[in-house]
Design a protein around this nucleic acid. Structure first.
Lengths: 143, 143
DNA sequence: CAGAAATCGTTGGCGCAACCCACGATCCCT
DNA sequence: AGGGATCGTGGGTTGCGCCAACGATTTCTG
């Protein structure tokens, strides 16, 4: 699959692997009625505590407008609570609920299993090496 | 950017790097009025010669219906020619035109430069290693 | 302190990639 | 002669990443 001129291009390889990984994550999350944005938001809330929507967006690298939609869906399932911020009436304070924390745990478990599936063909040393290389790329291309 | 729980997950790292790479490719191709599908189709035509649309789709891993749209755009710019197949009237024979070959050359040059930009922080040995690891993942996840 | 500038939540939109389904036309195999 | 597969095409959907604009509010600043 894919022209030979591309099969050796790292940008192509990365894209293909990312597509496969994305399918795994998508399917795994879909079984819980969730998607990537939901997990990111729940995880960010769990790690740094309640935050405004704009802050959440910055933490997760999600656009403010997309945060709105994802939070609507999370709030509809009571995984998250939106409260007006008394100190700044422009803001909402978003809080992780107890069901939200449990759902996050389930999604995290799913995600861990996916890592194993994804990295199945690699030795532990190779996995470390891959992480190192990807991290180096990411750090460099992040200013 | 991104919850800490994700920052070490390979699926996340791969996705982030793929997003950066995708932006580079997108911008580079956009300067030529092209996108990923266009390049893939042109490259496949150049490598294996004329083909039916369905064959092209299989070569490139692009859905038949998406091949139609992309070929419409390529044909409108005379980069590709669609001819009814005399041996099978269901099929079109898609051919790379001379302008198409030249455009492919330009896109290939652009893509090569992008690889350098993308892999800038890695030593030659690291680049080889990254390619090896990604290829291993890709091979494994194709049954 | 008043007015300008920035921020926040929200709505609505765009593009790309990857899919799916259904149709009529055509071909292939029994 | 039929049934089943294949082909091109048109119509959708989803996820993710963006951008523009708006009214409400807060902060900065002159």
């Amino acid at each position: 699959m894919g022209p030979a001129a591309l099969r050796t291009a790292p940008s192509w390889l990365i894209n293909q692997v990312a597509t496969h990984a994305g399918r795994l994550v998508h399917d795994g999350f879909a079984a819980h009625g969730a998607r990537g944005y939901h997990y990111r938001l729940l995880a960010a809330l769990h790690e740094h505590g309640p935050a405004s929507q704009a802050d959440l967006g910055r933490r997760c690298g999600i656009d403010r407008s997309d945060v709105v939609a994802a939070l609507n869906e999370l709030a509809a399932r009571d995984l998250v609570r939106r409260t007006p911020d008394p100190d700044d009436r422009r803001r909402n304070v978003v809080t992780l609920t107890e069901p939200g924390r449990r759902e996050l745990d389930r999604l995290t478990t799913t995600l861990d299993q996916i890592q194993d599936t994804l990295l199945a063909p690699l030795t532990p040393a190779d996995r470390t090496e891959l992480t190192r290389l990807l991290t180096a790329l990411l750090d460099h291309h992040r200013q």
